[in-house]
Amino acid sequence: MSIEYIPGDTLLHRLDIRVKMYGFLGLIILSFIFQDPLYQLFIVTLTGLLAFWMKISLQKIGRMVAPLIPIIITIILITGFTFAPERFGQASNQAILFYVLPGNRLGATVGGFLMGTTFTFRLVSMMIASSVLTLTTSIDDFIQFFQMMKVPVEITMMLTTAIRFIPTLDKKRQLIIEAQKARGVRFNNKGIIGSIRSHLPLMIPMFINSILMANSLSMAMLNRGYGLTRTSTSMRQIRFSFKDSCAIAFFILLLTSAFFVRFKLHLGVL
């Protein structure tokens, strides 16, 4: 998952953060009510289309999935061997392919493997969906979402300042590294002890500088009235527009029909 935000003006960018979060939630529910890999494939395709629409390249998704391949294989193997035949409703899925251990123990079921595939698809669709979400939503929007969810001001404040100071601290780090290099420090010592030791000249000034900065930051915040009241004026007016309502309606329709298919028609189960 990438946390970088790509500024843009697509429909997804303009949607209210809450709508996007509801949509994300809806997608999670959707993928968890179905067990059939075919249905999961449909969901993956849906998110894939979203990603395609956002011009997130296939290579990027490929790069995100690649490190997960060992995990995916492990998941499929584990589910394949541990899911007992009784857990599946359909006879075809109860079929046992073979046994690993003699005496008919630890059998591999068709349903188990299918379940593993479902898990994999869920993982991939979640990954794509969350990437799409972070790529189209600015940090400000997320913070606003926290505020709307009545997360305490202190926590949102902490988040904003933390994000605000990332570039500042990174600059400090660079300056410290340069200053220490000029005194002959090598930062690439071998071994764990060596590398810890060589990083002390970086870490200690980093801590000291952070503390000094935190000190003056606390002064600056008090200077500007922080802490006088428990709340603060929200700087964004709530803009729940027509397209947001449309999106919500679409989500509801999708979820309802999914529930109908799953619980009335009893489809999509293994």
Binding site: L175, A179, P205
Partner: peptide
Amino acid sequence: FQNPDHQIF
């Protein structure tokens, strides 16, 4: 360098 606090540890 300009800021001594970047190197003192």
